[in-house]
Nucleic acid binder design. Structure first.
Length: 314
DNA sequence: GGCCAGGCTAGCA
DNA sequence: TGCTAGCATGGC
């Protein structure tokens, strides 16, 4: 057993993260809300490892203890620390975000309600991309079902010390070996199956190198990936947000964001892409986080929570 | 039963 | 460059 401490820049709200996970179920995550614990399998240097994150220290002095099984080299341990810090956005200073949100009466309400909420990133960029392709144009519940089916079909499992099995997302190699027809019984559309398998094959063939992405600018990543069939701007924006943790993306075409803005600003109709880009100019360089909070306003409304719990859910 | 989903492509003007 | 039909199926 190996454990180490990670400092987290306050505010970090584990409770808010758990609320979000209620409307964004993730079969890879095992949550113990009472203990403030999160467990999942992830790959370190390609090797599946079960990691437990224990949150502590309260809202204003948050800390994070990471437990994992032994058997990691020093280099792998270092990579694991980096991965967990990145995944939890532990080093992000939200102060400037809240200053910015306080200047807008609608956003101020969200900043107060969701204080300490951060992204929980998907460290496997192949997984982040495939999950996003799956989510194109589908409701989140069904998208989640499809992702789970793909993991069971092509992924693997790893056991923790207590013998519980954890799903690990399939590798590009495993997906590249599939044919689209194999995913049809899982209720993937023909085209969605092709997009996902094509992307996996692009990685395996070396045409796409995801290891290069962290060193690219947002626009460079968009230019690098959107030529691939089935991958549009929205999809890469989501990859940049949920996979790479980039703070200033505005997925202006996103239906959830459009609904969130309508809800929070009390608009009669969903704003179009142009209006959103104009509105979002004042959110730079934190547009990803404002987007997260606007999405979360929708999530809170669906769950019947404040600040929008009592209102029309459309 | 109909409209909506955290879109994208291809075809057309 | 800009518009639109078609995709494909669950959720509500």
């Amino acid at each position: 057993m190996l454990s180490f401490e990670i400092p987290v820049k306050p505010p970090y709200s584990f409770a808010r993260l758990l609320s979000r996970l209620k409307t964004h179920p993730n079969e890879q995550l095992q949550v113990d809300a009472e203990a403030g614990r999160l467990r999942r399998a992830l790959r370190v240097d390609g090797k599946p490892v079960v990691v437990t994150l224990q949150f502590s220290g309260g809202t204003e002095t948050p800390g994070l203890t990471v437990f994992t099984d032994g058997g990691l080299t020093a280099g792998q341990q270092e990579e694991l620390v980096r991965t967990v810090r990145h995944m939890t956005c532990a080093d992000v200073d939200l102060g400037p975000l809240y200053e910015l949100m306080a200047a807008d009466q609608h956003l101020r309400l969200l900043a107060d309600s969701f204080r300490g909420l951060r992204f929980l990133l998907t460290p496997d960029l192949f997984q982040a991309m495939v999950e996003t392709i799956i989510a194109q144009q589908l409701n989140l519940a069904f998208a989640n079902t499809l992702t789970l089916r793909l993991m069971r079909f092509a992924g693997e499992t790893v056991e923790d010390r207590e013998g519980n099995a954890h799903l690990v997302f399939p590798t590009p190699e495993a997906v590249a070996r599939l044919e689209p027809e194999a995913l049809r019984p899982l209720q993937f559309s023909q085209r969605k199956a092709e997009y996902i398998i094509d992307f996996a094959r692009a990685i395996v063939s070396g045409r796409i190198d995801v290891k290069r992405l962290p060193d690219m600018s947002d626009e460079e990543v968009i230019g690098y990936l959107t030529p691939l069939r089935g991958i549009g701007r929205w999809t890469v924006e989501c990859l940049l947000m949920f996979g790479l943790g980039r703070p200033d993306l505005l997925p202006a075409a996103d239906i959830g964001l459009r609904n969130g803005i309508r809800l929070v600003y009390g608009l009669p109709d969903k704003p179009d892409e142009k209006e959103i880009r104009r509105l979002g100019e004042s959110w730079a360089p934190w547009r990803s986080y404002v987007t997260l909070y606007l999405w979360e306003a929708m999530g809170a409304a669906r769950r019947g929570e404040a600040p929008f719990g009592g209102r029309d859910k459309t």
